[in-house]
Design a protein around this nucleic acid. Structure first.
Lengths: 153, 153
DNA sequence: GTAACTGCAAAATATTTGCATCCTT
DNA sequence: AAGGATGCAAATATTTTGCAGTTAC
């Protein structure tokens, strides 16, 4: 049992699931804990790997789908056509509010949510009505910017 | 010869291809003309359909790939994990500059490049270095807004 | 004529669906 | 006990690759 999953973390996870009307199952607990432990967004493949071959691929698909529908995670579109998933801060079922900026590091290739940087207002040509603004910034992240010395992981 | 492809359009198309060091073939001419005629971004599937079953699916993949590499079109990531392609305004080979805003209409479901609306500068937490900013705005477009005035979901 | 492009077939991936079984409530 | 979730198998869908024939230059 990993030290990173304490008793209270377990309780918190179950609580999140119950609040979203999802039954508390092994796969959901495990996958949700991966998100809670991860600083950056995860792809379907990351989750399969990190879950340690423990769950069927189909279960991962269905779990992620349920999480998105219930507003537990949101998706981030990427330039290479992979979908990334990250925890929502405060989304309701079927009603996402993820108007924050996403940052993709070209060095370590991680994507993170900058929850505190909200999307800017942008003036559009007359006639257009904006309802949500997604921003994805590519660059070099905080960690990688230190001296740019190779890797750390 | 379709009325929409005039002699000068043909010449323009061939010219674009030659300038990018691509040989001028039927599929490339056809697919490039679709982009030149289209106001909005196209998905792989749209291109297959609009090209009228004339080209092999594989050729469409390879043509789009060549266009992206040569800086003729750029990709737009979408929330549903489909890739859209749209003409570049001024990209060099291997060096895209598509710092403009993309607009997705939730009514007619088209995506367009707002070439004149450049991405805003966004203040990031210290340590982060931005190199490019992608903005995708969802809402209702100019055309669809006529007659949609009072709605708000 | 040569190099590059295309179409076909097939392989490799990715995603979805049906259903019997197992688990949560 | 009942309804939902899971795992397996299989059906679809998507993308890539190899190669022989064709076309652009």
């Amino acid at each position: 049992m990993p030290a990173t999953t304490t008793r209270s973390a377990e309780a918190k996870i179950a609580d999140i699931l119950r609040r979203k009307n999802l039954s508390v199952t092994d796969s959901r607990k495990k996958i949700l804990s991966l998100f809670l432990q991860s600083a950056d967004a995860l792809a379907h493949g990351d989750i399969e790997k990190k879950a340690g071959e423990k769950f069927d691929r189909v279960t991962v698909y269905r779990t992620l789908q349920a999480f998105v529908e219930k507003g537990i995670v949101h998706t981030i579109p990427t330039i290479d056509n992979s979908i990334l998933y990250a925890l929502c801060k405060d989304c309701k079922e079927g009603h996402h509010h993820d108007e924050h900026v996403h940052f993709v590091c070209r060095n370590c290739n991680t994507t993170i949510c900058l929850d505190d940087i909200v999307s800017p207002r942008i003036d559009l040509p007359s006639g257009y009505k904006a309802e949500s603004v997604q921003v994805v910034i590519h660059g070099v992240c905080k960690n990688c910017n230190r001296g740019f010395e190779d890797r750390k992981d």
